[in-house]
Structures are given as structure tokens and as C-alpha cells.
Design a binder for these strands. Structure first.
Length: 499
RNA sequence: GCCCCGGUAGCUCAGCGGUUAGAGCAACGGACUCAUAAUCCGGAGUGCGCCGGUUCGAAUCCGGCCCGGGGCACCA
């Protein structure tokens, strides 16, 4: 079975920040891991470019919406290699191939009878020339921008018959209890569905920066329809000259933040059903990264700057920290102090130093050649299960727990060094065989955790595997081998140098 | 108002019916020197938000309450 993983597409009106990096890194860990396992992976990310905020920002800047979108989309596209994300494609919703596909799919939904003409009634600000949502409305039904009283206005829109999918959605949640995870988010979506679904308008008039409704060119589709459909439209053109939809759809995992749950857990499956397409196999919802217990915000000046972290410590360090510090799925606190502690105690001291001391000992006492002898069964017993355990945890999209499982082994290996005290063995010729065994076992242990960690910290594990005289980073290589290979190890500079 | 999460060592959290409640970090004492002044060991530190119930037995189940966060439709 193929493994298609997606991130949300990022709205170009914002600057790339830690939250974008977080979701993308999580998706990349899954994609890399599944590739290690030899799965047929497709990893998609991209930008959402239509809608009024972009149109307004472009107008303010005196450029066209397309120019603004081009400029800002480039920033997101540049983020991907920075964080070592291995996306197979980067979709932009302003891509004509996407807009054409949206039009075709929406026609299909229309012809299936799921769209009708209706009236949207809401609070309208004549000066903004726009409707306001309940959350936007100021006290006393006033405009938050202009402070003037809003009026009730009606507009003719096309409506999507969401209500018609109530039973189908309830059945989906019932038959696939894991459709939305973690369970608290599933509960939230389900209770929303059970509270009774109303039809939603799927078009807007008076806005041109969007995908025109094919049967009514005076309107454009509501951005969410345009945006959600990216997950399927991309497969039509992501690979040059080929339509890979049937190969990869339905997606294995769609990652989202909890702020966009309703759109993905309710609207999205309904839209797919209306279009006669399968729904994704799972929707994984992560929490917010908090700083000082507050949601990140620039105005609070409490932002952990991902670019600063990467400049100083590299992409691996950021990837590790985000996957390690916050239990994936829950809200969690991040901070520069927390980052520095994890970097120093875990990456540098536990793992980096284990690699250093292991390689150094083989270089010093065995001329840099891994003894080709059988490994210590005590360590084999404690390390050989790591591959299966990590694979199972990543199948369940629990990257934080997967890292903990690996770290237990790393700590075990450091303890093994103390228990066996190779520096004592090295002084006694009679202990030469035992030293061979200990060193070979350490090399093997480091090699196994290196392969297991590769999806998380691809750069440093790539360096280390080469220093161990190996090159196989496939998942099969995460299996414990019974005998040392005689590989040439070293030299190895500190993987995670301290400032 | 209704619904959903969470409230466990100084800090961050795991455990979610069963031996004397755990980990990491921080802190204190000790060991060692292969290593990125790294590592390892040890003791100390809470009896699990509060009240009540079920049970041979509850942090773990049930009820109520308190505190914190979130959802209850058209924000991209």
C-alpha cells in the first residue's frame, strides 16, 4: 500500500514561523521513516494563496495578488530544504493546473446535486465591503476595523449541501474510530457533527482573487473549498506528465493543527464524498506550541525563532527538539532554555558523546577496525527490539514516544560502557577477547540507534553512519546483527558541538 | 449554558485497577577517565486537585466540586 502524507497548505499572508516548521517536520519524519521501510511514499506540502486577505495586502502594497503570492510562496518553498523536509512536491493553489482541477471537481459535485443557489445572510460592514463572522464582530454588532454599526445584508451564494452528509459522516466516525486522532479531537469533531450540520456557502461574490465558479463566473469559490481540494488536485500534476491520483489517493496520513479541525474532519470528508472520492485513511491533529504557557505571538516577544536555532545548531537540532519536547498531539511548552537543555543533555551528551567515545575507543585500541566477533547477548537482548517498537510507534504517529524508546537504548549503551569499563580491559592482555566483544557490541548498538534516528535527524545520522564504516540506512538495517563486520570506523568530529 | 481534555516530585511529563507511585531535567553526595568537563552510581525529594462512592485492592473506575485549557459553524 502506498503512503501519501500531507501537511496543510500554508497561507501566504503570514511569514513562515515555528508552527509551520513543526507540522512539516512531523510529516517529514513520517515520510522519511516510511521510505526507510521501502514504502511507496508521496509527501505533499504547499501554499494556500487565494482569498481576501491576500487581495487586500496586495492592494496595500500596490502589486497584484499574484505577485504578492509569488513573493511569499517563495519564502515557504525555501523553508523546506532549510528544515531538511523531503517533500515530493510543493503545490500552490494559484497554479492554473490546480484551479482547473478545482473547477472540474466542483462541477462534478454540482452535477451530483450537492450544490444549490441560496442566500447568505450576515452582518455586513459597508466600509469594509465585507461580511463579518461572529468572532470578528465587535461589541454591539460593530465593525472591529471601523467601529461602525454593522447591517444585516443578504448575498446570493452557492451552497454546499453539507447537511446531506450528516449520516454518512456519523457512519464514517463510527466505522473508522481512528479516522481522527487523538481521541479528544475525534470527540470534538463528532460532537460538532451530531449537533446538526447546516449547509455552508461555497462561493463568494465581489471577490476576484480565487477560483471562478464555472457555471457562474461572477463568483469565486470560498477559499476552503479551493484549499482543501489541493490534497487531491496535486496528484494530477505533481509528477510531470503523469496522473498519480489512483496510486496515492486516499492519503494515509493528513497532518493538521487543531485550529483547522472542523474543516478537515467535517467539511473535507463531506466534499470528498460529494465528489465520489475516498476519504483519507487518517487525520492526525497536533496541538499548539506554547511559550510561557501562552500561544506563540510576536507581540508577546516570546517566539522561539526556528531560523535562529537552525543557524546556530542546524536543522537536526530543531527537528529533534520539536519532536522530543512536546508530546505529539498535545499542546506543549517550548522555549530557548528548553531547547538548549535538550540539545546539550540529550543530543550532545547522551547521543553525540556516546558516538564519540565509541568511535574513539575502537580507533585507540583496535586501529579503527570493528572487531569481527559475536556481540554481547546482554545488550542484544535489550537493543534488538528497538526497530519493531519504533516502527509501531510511528505507525501510530507517536514520534515523541518513538524518540523516548530510542533514548532508552542510548542511555543503556552509555551504562554499558561504564559496566564494562573498556579502559580497564585494554590494560589486560588476557581480556583482549572481551574487549573485542564490548567494542563490537557498542559499534553495533550505535549503528542500530543511528538507523532508527535517521528519520528524525537525517544530517547527523548520515555523518555518523559513514563514520561507522556503513552506508545502509534502510529500516532493514535497524535490525540487530549478531556479529561485528570488521568495518573501518572514524574519524568522527563532534556531531553536536556545544557553543 | 452544554460538551471535551488536563490538574502526579522544584520543573516538564509518563503511568490510567494490583508488588514499597516512575522517567528526564534541576539539586546533593560519590565513582571513573574511553569521550563533546562527557558518563555512571547513590540517597533525598511527592503518596497522585478536593470530597464521597465502588472494590479484597484506586493515581488508575463512578458521582459531585474546584482550577486551567479547548470546542459549540462559514478566520485564511
Amino acid at each position: 500500500m502506498s503512503y501519501y502524507v500531507t501537511t496543510p497548505i500554508y497561507y501566504v499572508n503570514a511569514q513562515p514561523h515555528l508552527g509551520h516548521a513543526y507540522t512539516t517536520i512531523a510529516a517529514d519524519v513520517l515520510a522519511r521513516h516510511m521510505r526507510q521501510r521501502g514504502e511507496d511514499v508521496f509527501f505533499l506540502t504547499g501554499t494556500d494563496e487565494h482569498g481576501e486577505p491576500v487581495a487586500l495586502a496586495a492592494e496595500a502594497a500596490g502589486i497584484s495578488p499574484k505577485e504578492l503570492a509569488d513573493r511569499n510562496a517563495a519564502r515557504f518553498e525555501a523553508l523546506m530544504p532549510r528544515i531538511e523536509a523531503t517533500n515530493d512536491f510543493f503545490i500552490r493553489t494559484s497554479d492554473p493546473r490546480h484551479t482547473e482541477a478545482v473547477r472540474e471537481l466542483m462541477v462534478r459535485i454540482h452535477e451530483a446535486g450537492h450544490i444549490y443557489k441560496g442566500e447568505y445572510e450576515g452582518l455586513y460592514c459597508p466600509r469594509c465591503a465585507d461580511f463579518k463572522t461572529a468572532q470578528e464582530v465587535g461589541p454591539g454588532d460593530t465593525c472591529p476595523v471601523h467601529g461602525i454599526e454593522l447591517t444585516v445584508e443578504k448575498e446570493e451564494n452557492w451552497f454546499f449541501r453539507l447537511s446531506a452528509f450528516q449520516a454518512d459522516l456519523e457512519r464514517l466516525f463510527d466505522e473508522q474510530p481512528d479516522f481522527v486522532r487523538p481521541p479528544e479531537r475525534r470527540n470534538e469533531a463528532l460532537s460538532f457533527i451530531r449537533s446538526g450540520l447546516r449547509d455552508i456557502s461555497c462561493s463568494r461574490s465581489g471577490l476576484t482573487w480565487g477560483v471562478p465558479v464555472p457555471w457562474d463566473e461572477s463568483q469565486v469559490f470560498y477559499v476552503w473549498f479551493d484549499a482543501l481540494l489541493n490534497y487531491v488536485t496535486a496528484l494530477r500534476f505533481a509528477r510531470e506528465g503523469e496522473d498519480i491520483t489512483s496510486q496515492y489517493w486516499p492519503a494515509a496520513v493528513q497532518l493538521i493543527g487543531k485550529d483547522i479541525l472542523k474543516f478537515h474532519a467535517v467539511y473535507w470528508p463531506a466534499i470528498l464524498m460529494a465528489a465520489g472520492l475516498d476519504v483519507p485513511r487518517s487525520l492526525i491533529v497536533h496541538g499548539y506550541l506554547l511559550m510561557d504557557g501562552e500561544k506563540m505571538s510576536k507581540s508577546l516577544g516570546n517566539v522561539l525563532d526556528p531560523f535562529e536555532v537552525m543557524d546556530r545548531f542546524g536543522a537536526d537540532a530543531l527537528r529533534f527538539y520539536l519532536m522530543r519536547e512536546v508530546q505529539f498531539g498535545a499542546d506543549g511548552t517550548v522555549s530557548t532554555e528548553g531547547f538548549e537543555t535538550r540539545y546539550s543533555t540529550e543530543l550532545a551528551n547522551d547521543f553525540g558523546n556516546l558516538a564519540s567515545r565509541t568511535v574513539a575507543m575502537v580507533e585507540r585500541w583496535r586501529d579503527g577496525k570493528t572487531p569481527a566477533v559475536a556481540h554481547d547477548p546482554v545488550i542484544e537482548a535489550e537493543l534488538s527490539g528497538v526497530a519493531a517498537e519504533v516502527a509501531a510507534l510511528l505507525d501510530a504517529v507517536e514520534p515523541t514516544n518513538a524518540l523516548e524508546a530510542i533514548w532508552k537504548r542510548i542511555r543503556r549503551l552509555n551504562r554499558y560502557v561504564e559496566e564494562t569499563a573498556p579502559w580497564v580491559l585494554a590494560k589486560d592482555e588476557a581480556e583482549s577477547d572481551r574487549l573485542d566483544q564490548v567494542l563490537a557490541t557498542l559499534i553495533e548498538g550505535v549503528r542500530v540507534v543511528t538507523v532508527a534516528l535517521h528519520a528524525f535527524i537525517p544530517v547527523s545520522t548520515g555523518t555518523l553512519i559513514a563514520a561507522l564504516g556503513e552506508d545502509d540506512l534502510s529500516w532493514a538495517a535497524a535490525t540487530w546483527r549478531p556479529v561485528g563486520t570488521g568495518s573501518k570506523v572514524g574519524p568522527l568530529a563532534p556531531l553536536f558541538p556545544k557553543p
